[in-house]
């Protein structure tokens, strides 16, 4: 795959990277840092990409790995707003991120893959745990989210 093809595929899948950055980082500057780091890692890892697996599966693996090992530098900024002029879709997004916030880094990775509608087999391939374990862990994560909602 040459640079032009890679950039084209990257442009098609950049939404995944944006979502992972939003999930793992609270501040826009941190998200931008992580985005650039993921793109850099993807490009450097490209020789290891085997075309027999889906590009998105490979991208998830690299992007989530980078998010998990890349150290966060800034603390979340507290911004006091005079009002909350949120459009509904923004409110929905914030609510989703708020629900996922109590999860640890590994649980967030599992949930991101689950919410992306990947099969247990695909999640197992990306994370390196068995399909059974994916199911068990997802049940635990779902229970944790439900508990958080109730509290």
């Amino acid at each position: 795959m040459d640079e032009r093809q890679f950039l084209q595929l990257l442009a098609e899948h950049e939404g995944i990277i944006f979502k992972i950055c939003r999930l793992y980082r609270d501040v826009p500057e941190d998200r931008e840092d992580l985005f650039q780091e993921i793109v850099y890692q993807l490009w450097k890892s490209l020789p290891g990409y085997e075309a027999r697996s889906k590009f998105s599966t490979w991208l998830y693996k690299i992007a989530l790995s980078t998010a998990l090992v890349h150290f966060r530098r800034r603390r979340p900024a507290i911004v006091y707003m005079p009002a909350l002029p949120e459009v509904p879709s923004q409110a929905e997004e914030n609510r989703l991120l708020e629900l996922l916030a109590p999860l640890d880094a590994a649980e967030k990775a599992l949930m991101a893959l689950y919410l992306e509608d990947l099969s247990y087999a695909e999640i197992a391939e990306i994370t390196g745990i068995t399909e059974n374990n994916v199911g068990v862990r997802l049940n635990r994560v779902r229970a944790k989210i439900k508990k958080h909602v109730k509290s």
Partner: peptide, 26 residues
Amino acid sequence: KAAWQNMGAGHKSPEELKTYLRKMPV
């Protein structure tokens, strides 16, 4: 799932993406 899949993603221009390939501003 619906909220995740509808999450508004940003957009980077091809030029921006290209600059990220080599330099490590992060």
